[in-house]
Design a protein around this nucleic acid. Sequence first.
RNA 1: GACUCGGUAGCUCAGCUGGAUAGAGCAACGGCCUUCUAAGCCGUCGGUCAGGCGUUCGAAUCGCCUCCGAGUCGCCA
Length: 457
Amino acid sequence: MVGNGEVIAIDYSSPNIAKPFSIGHLRSTIIGHAIGNCLEKCGYKVIRINHLGDFGTQFGKIIYSYLHFGNKEAVKANPIPELVKLYVEFHERAKDQPGMEEEARKIFKELEQGNKEYHDLWSWFREVSLEDYLKVYQLLRVSFDSYDGEAFYNDKMQPVIDELQEKGLLIEDEGAMIVPLEEGTPPALIQKTDGSTLYITRDLAAFFYRKRVYQANKVLYVVGNEQKLHFQQLAQVIEKMGYPYAKDIIHVNFGLVLQDGKKMSTRKGKIVRLEDVLREAIRLSREYIEEKNPDLAEKELIAEKVGVSAIIFNDLKNYRGNDFEFNLEDSVNFFGQTGPYLQYTSVRIKSIFAEDTFVFDGKIDLNWFGSDDVFDMVKTISFYPGIIQRCVQEYAPSILAKYLLTLATQFNSFYGKEKILVSDRIERHTKLHLCRMIEFVIDDGMRLLGMQIIEKM
RNA sequence: GACUCGGUAGCUCAGCUGGAUAGAGCAACGGCCUUCUAAGCCGUCGGUCAGGCGUUCGAAUCGCCUCCGAGUCGCCA
């Protein structure tokens, strides 16, 4: 095992409380989850951290808005949409009432200092939002070891600031406290003019916490491309503090999900909700089942597994660092290079074993493996461990995704040409042995990607 | 303006530590189900690898320049 028990903390998913779970967070979630699975397979100990965006001035705004025009029942019934509504309402009204912004900042400051009323509200908003996210995580079959978000580090930043001060790294500039960095890198802003902290301050505290408490050898951040500079700064500040950790901070960056070449997200009035996308995928796979296999047992459950896995695979087959085009009609299409294609391949193999409960007894014809296409398949199978290692080295699940497509294609081609369950016992067992190996690799690979394995479809 | 990342078939993407005729899926067209699931298989069509210059025996891949797109560049995260 390459991992040798080394501890790797992965910071991924990390949705912003009181905001809808976006398609961008989906990318972080499934990329982080898949990388975590691959690392575990390689013998690493993985700590999965959902670094919730549960802090910041927006809470001042939401609390203000809730106290003035909010409604408890409405939030209870429909947490996230209602909280979003309050946030939007705040901004609409604040346009004409300049005092509101100031008021919201004040509320946030008091929240930070422990105001009971505000804290209770914040805690409630956090809880109901998290409940909503858990529904998505349940669909995706994703879970975390920790949900400590930004707020968790609220009381852990001062020691870091003190340390920066002691080491003489912190200087005042235009009223703010900054750490100057290497030539070409803008300085890191540690404290605002008003003394409040910033994103990087929290991330510094979080990094040291993860080093200390989790004994993490590396910390992976599955965060979008747009934060590249942030992580460069984070690594540089830590290096300037004298720690040899810069190389342990790994920004597993990813690109945007586009629609017609434009960013697919909360554009004017049109919020692309992840749950809607998943529901749509499930609905379409249900339609397929009705068309292709109407007598299938547990249709609803299969539809869910196929639909959700289709969305996951559609994302993971693309190299994470690049933007990719999300086309609902193409994910509607369950042909070709898709999750359902892999699941279908697995199901086909399983249906063979439904006819013959094969047990490997060593009596196979090894010469048969020498023939052209079979040899290619055996070669592909033998690449599997190396593929996983590359996945882990490059933090790129797409390598595994593409590989599985290759193997599945080879199998389907073979399956179309050759009958497996022939009467000759040696030949049959030789073929079944090959099928077993392929089934194992495809199922294991799908599992690592976070997809569902099904028996029938 | 500076820096970063992209530009490969009509569309979506691989390939990029240099190596032989640049691959796959979708779309289009044509075949294959009395036999293990046709969500499959087989075939046809489709590319001056954005453009130029350079390095090299050899460049989609490395370097430089230009064009186009995206992102980032002190008090958001």
